[in-house]
């Protein structure tokens, strides 16, 4: 459904990724895991049109696109709620903007139901400053669903939250897939989170970023992290990361020479 083929982006002589390819199937929950600074966010910037890709193709449902504006909903680490609107008004923003506006009453009812399933009922008329970080992020989740798009891009959506709140929100993210039939592409640096949520987990290398291994856990969702299969995958992921590290894979992104050295070492494997 979503295909990124041969994407390339560099800033000056610093290559972020040179031939990145990714495929997301309809209804899939795909998670990209990688060390911080590996270029995950740049990829998302390319997908959302914040930066242009140097090369490569983005296809959505067979159509070539320059970016996914108008096709994907987006949620990131910051809740990005506007302090001058209530939680309800914030979640209705996608419904009242854009070329084809959604019907106001229908959108309101839909948002009301979403507030209920996200456990936010009763807080519709609160302002963001009056509620907790977890509730703000849940409201951001409602707003993301109010985009009414089939694809959702999640950019480390939970990394600013504490462990307990994050656990609660994991189940809500799973709801996106099971209840609302969304196709999800998420990036994170939290391996546990990736294993609990993802249908497919892509392990990324840095400088240039590439998918070095894919994992597809068979355990049914919702998953507990203590499942032997997940623990086993985690061991493999960590091992993989360690070998990468020993090959000096964590490079200084500001130093293009380092990146070149590393490239040689990879070729030498």
């Amino acid at each position: 459904m979503l295909k990124v083929i041969g994407a390339a982006k560099s800033f000056g002589n610093r290559t972020i990724f040179s031939n990145f390819t990714l495929k997301v199937e309809p209804g899939e929950f795909k998670v990209l895991v990688g060390p911080s600074g590996c270029g995950k966010s740049t990829l998302f910037d390319g997908l959302t049109g914040v930066v242009g890709l140097d090369r490569g193709k983005i296809t959505w449902k067979g159509k070539d696109l320059t970016h996914l504006r108008g096709h994907a909903a987006y949620m990131q680490q910051k809740d990005l709620l506007l302090p001058w609107f209530t939680l309800m008004e914030n979640s209705l923003l996608p419904a009242i903007t854009g070329g084809k506006k959604q019907d106001r009453t229908l959108a309101g009812q839909r948002a009301g139901r979403l507030f209920h399933s996200m456990g936010l009922q009763g807080f519709e008329n609160h302002y963001p400053a009056q509620v907790s970080g977890g509730m703000r992020q849940r409201c951001a989740l409602v707003r993301t669903l109010m985009f009414e798009r089939e694809l959702i891009l999640l950019d480390e959506p939970l990394s600013a939250l504490d462990a307990i709140t994050r656990g609660e929100l994991h189940s809500l993210l799973l709801l996106l897939q099971s209840e609302f039939n969304q196709t999800i592409l998420m990036i994170t640096h939290d391996i546990e989170e990736a294993l609990i949520l993802g249908d497919t987990i892509c392990l990324l290398s840095s400088c240039p970023m590439d998918v070095i291994e894919e994992f597809t856990p068979k355990s049914p969702k919702p998953r507990a992290f203590e499942t032997p299969e997940l623990l086993d995958i985690r061991v493999r992921v960590l091992e993989r990361l360690r070998t990468l590290n020993s090959l000096d894979l964590i490079c200084d992104p500001k130093d293009p020479k380092m990146a070149d050295n590393r490239g040689m070492k990879i070729n030498g494997i």
Partner: peptide, 14 residues
Amino acid sequence: DQEFRVLFSLMGAT
């Protein structure tokens, strides 16, 4: 903030 501009662009806001 740039992030808010991006969010609104993704919504397709005029």
